[in-house]
Computed example of a mutant assay.
Amino acid sequence: MAEARPASLYAPSALVFSVAQGDDAAATVLRASTLSCAPAATGTHPDPQAACAALKSAGGTLDRLLTAPNPDHACPMHYAPVTVTADGVWQGTRVAWKHTFSNACEMSATVNGNAVFAF
C-alpha cells in the first residue's frame, strides 16, 4: 500500500485579498489579488516578494500590519466604509480576516504603504 505524501515540504501559504466599498457581505469588490508565499512568492499581487516578507515578519497576523494613522495624512471625516479581506491559508492554518475602515483615506493612512495591502 502506498503512503500518502505531501506535494511539498512547505505548509501552504496562499491568500486572496480584496478591497470592497461597504461594510457588509453585499459590499461591492473594487479590486482583488492573489498571493502565494510557499514555496515561492507568486500570484497576481504586484509585489509578491515584499508582501510575503511583510506577512512573514508579522507571523501571518494581518492586524499586526495595521498602524496608527499617519498624522501627516489628513483625512476627511465622512463615512464611506471600505472593507479589506484576506481569505486562504497561512503556513497551513486557515485565515479569514476582515477590517473595515471609515473611508478609503483612513485605509490608506492606516496601512501606510504596507506591501501586503498595495494591490
Rank of each mutant, 00 (worst) to 15 (best):
V16K: 15
V16M: 09
S18W: 09
S18P: 06
V19P: 07
V19G: 09
A20E: 03
Q21A: 15
D23G: 14
D23E: 14
D24Y: 00
D24E: 01
D24M: 02
A25V: 12
A25K: 15
A26W: 08
A26C: 08
A26N: 13
A27M: 06
A27E: 04
A27N: 09
A27L: 05
T28C: 07
T28N: 12
T28K: 06
T28D: 10
V29I: 08
R31L: 12
A32N: 14
A32V: 05
S33V: 03
S33D: 08
T34K: 15
L35A: 07
S36F: 11
S36D: 14
S36K: 13
C37H: 05
A38N: 03
A38P: 00
A38K: 04
A41K: 02
T42S: 14
T42V: 15
T42Q: 14
G43R: 01
G43F: 02
G43H: 00
T44I: 07
T44V: 10
T44P: 07
H45Q: 01
H45G: 01
P46N: 06
P46A: 07
D47A: 11
Q49T: 13
Q49P: 10
A50I: 12
A51H: 13
A51D: 12
C52T: 03
C52M: 00
A53I: 10
A53H: 11
A53T: 15
A53G: 11
A54T: 11
L55Q: 05
K56I: 08
S57D: 06
S57V: 07
S57H: 07
S57P: 00
A58P: 00
A58T: 01
G60T: 06
T61A: 13
T61Y: 12
L62W: 03
L62G: 03
D63W: 01
R64A: 06
L65A: 01
L65H: 01
L65G: 00
L66N: 04
T67Q: 15
T67H: 14
A68R: 09
P69I: 04
P69D: 00
N70P: 06
N70F: 07
D72P: 07
D72H: 14
D72W: 13
D72F: 13
H73E: 10
C75V: 08
C75D: 06
P76Q: 11
H78W: 08
A80I: 12
P81V: 12
V82M: 03
V82D: 02
V82F: 02
V82L: 05
V82N: 04
V82R: 05
V82K: 01
T83E: 04
T83F: 03
V84D: 10
V84M: 09
V84W: 07
T85C: 02
A86I: 00
A86H: 00
A86E: 02
D87A: 15
D87K: 15
D87G: 12
G88M: 04
W90F: 01
Q91M: 13
G92S: 09
T93D: 06
T93M: 03
R94Y: 09
A96T: 14
A96Y: 06
A96K: 14
A96P: 04
K98E: 14
K98P: 08
H99E: 05
H99C: 04
T100A: 11
T100L: 08
S102T: 10
S102K: 14
S102M: 12
A104P: 07
A104K: 10
A104V: 09
C105T: 09
C105K: 11
C105A: 10
